[in-house]
Simulated scan of single mutants.
Amino acid sequence: MALKTIMTALAATLGLAMAGGMALAADISSSAATAGGKALVARQAHFKDQGAAFKAINDELRKDAPDKAAIIANTATLKSNGEALPTWFPKGSGPETGLKTAAKPEVWTDAAGFEAAANRFQVETARLADIASAGDMDALKAQVRATGGACKNCHDSYRGPDPH
């Protein structure tokens, strides 16, 4: 009899936990369906692409014979992302969406500072793409560091810890 009672209680607890999880998933799903939520999800995808492109460039530069075409393609991705980056942060796409984000409120409260940081990234990624096209690997390595510095500059002021 005691085992049956324990099993019933366990089943009820499991059912409540599943229902709570489904409700949370539905809430997150509805948050992601808002304009701000869609912008936040898209922004996170863009940053993952950007990180993958940066990693691919660095991986190539570690090789004895880097693939120039791969470097050029990935620097083009970074340049394109740099140009679009300011549009990834529309008002309403921060923590108020109810979704996890590393974007600090300062992105929106210090718009001029954020714009300056985004502009620095745009300048550095454009230089990176130009140098990659020219094929000077030593200059490219130096510009990768400068571009990384622009990333860090923005992260220091406008990005908090990864919420995932």
Rank of each mutant, 00 (worst) to 15 (best):
D136N: 15
S29D: 13
F121D: 12
A112C: 03
E96M: 07
L10Q: 04
G148T: 05
A69P: 02
N58E: 14
A65D: 11
N81S: 08
L16P: 00
A65S: 13
P86W: 04
L3G: 00
A117L: 04
T5Q: 10
G92N: 11
L128E: 07
T75H: 03
T101P: 11
A129C: 04
D110R: 06
S133D: 12
T101N: 05
P90H: 11
L140F: 10
V144I: 01
L10D: 00
A45K: 09
A25K: 15
T77I: 13
A25C: 00
L14G: 13
M7H: 02
D64E: 13
V144H: 11
E115A: 15
T34C: 08
W108G: 09
A52F: 03
T75I: 01
D136E: 11
P86E: 08
G51P: 00
M7L: 15
A12V: 15
R127T: 08
E96P: 00
K141G: 13
A118I: 06
V41F: 03
S30F: 00
A45W: 00
A132F: 03
P86I: 06
K100N: 09
T8F: 03
N58V: 02
M7Y: 01
L3Y: 00
D67E: 07
A70C: 01
D138Q: 15
A129F: 01
S31T: 02
P86K: 08
A139M: 06
T101L: 04
T87D: 12
Q50W: 05
E96Y: 10
D59W: 02
N81C: 01
A56Y: 01
I131Y: 03
Q50R: 08
E83C: 00
A23D: 02
F121E: 12
G82Y: 03
D49G: 15
A103T: 06
L16I: 13
K91E: 15
A134I: 01
T125H: 08
L40K: 07
D130Q: 14
E115M: 06
G149D: 08
A65E: 11
G135H: 06
A2Y: 05
A132E: 08
A102W: 06
N81D: 13
A112V: 08
R62H: 06
P105R: 09
S80K: 14
N81I: 09
L14S: 15
T109H: 11
E106Q: 15
A146C: 00
A134R: 12
A69R: 03
G135N: 05
T97S: 09
A17H: 01
N81T: 05
M18C: 12
G94S: 05
K79L: 04
L14I: 14
V41G: 01
A118L: 03
L16Y: 11
M137P: 00
F121Y: 12
Q143L: 02
R43A: 08
G37T: 07
N81R: 08
